[in-house]
Amino acid sequence: MNRFKETSARILFMGAACVCILAVALICLFLLVNGVPAIAEIGVLEFLSGTTWRPANGLYGIAPMIIGSLYVTAGALIVGVPLGLLCAIYLARFASQRILRFMRPAMELLAGIPSVVYGFFGLMVIIPLIRGVFGVQGMSILAASLLLGIMILPTIITVSYTSIMAVPESYYEGGLALGANHERCVFKLLVPAAASGIMAGIILGLGRAVGETMAVIMVIGNQPRIPAGILEGARTLTGNIVLEMGYAADLHRGALIGTAVVLFVFILLINILFYILSRKVRT
C-alpha cells in the first residue's frame, strides 16, 4: 500500500513537472498549425519582406512591423541600457545603506507595475511633451522608445546589480592595492568581470521590449508603414496582432497568427542567447 502511494505520488509530481513541456509544445503546435498555412499561402518571402500591409486588398507584408519592432527595441535599449547600468553600478558600489534599503523594494515594485499604467503615463505625459518640444503629433517611435526604455530599467538594474555584486571582493581590493582609485576599480575591474551577467540583463530587457504590447500601442500611433524618422508613427509586431485580431477572419487571421509565429521565433532566439549567457555566468 505504502509502495503504491509513493509510486503514484512520484508519477503525479513528474506529470506536473511535464506540464511545462506540454504547455510549450501546445503553444508551438497551435501557432504553427494556424499560422504556417497562411504564411505558405501568402508566400514566405512576400510575407516577411512585403512592405505593404493592407488586408482589405489581400496585401500581407509584415516588413513595416518587423522594422517598427526593431526601431522601438533599439530605441528602448539606447535609453534604458546606459541609465540602467549606471544605476546598477551606483547601487552596487556608490550608494549608502540608507538609499539601498529604500531602493531595493522600490525596484521590485517598479518591475511589477502593470504595462497599461506605463502606457497611460506615456499617453498623458510623454506624448504632450514630444508634441510641445518638436511640434509634431506626438505618437511616435521616440515616445515608444522612451517609454519602453523606462519600462525595462528595473529589469536591467536588478540583473546587472546582482551580477556586479557577485564579483569577488578580492578583485576590488587587489585593484586598490595596486593604487587605483575607487572609480577606476569599479569600471576597470568589477564591471568587466560582471560583463556576461550584465549582457544577460540587457538581453532580458530586450525580450521585454520586443514582447511588450499594451504600453506600446498606446503611444506609437500604429500606422502600418515603414517609418521615415523617429518622430513618425509606426507599428510593432505585437501591436499588429492585438489591434486587428478582434475582427480578422480567414487569411487575415492566419496572417496575424503568422505575425505571432515570427514574434515567437524572435523571442526564442533572444531566450537562447540569454540561456547561453546566464550559463556562462554560473560557470
Partner: peptide, 8 residues
C-alpha cells in the same frame, strides 16, 4: 515559458 510575450 517565462520569456514568451503576453500577446502570444
Amino acid at each position: 515559458l517565462a520569456g514568451i510575450p503576453s500577446i502570444v
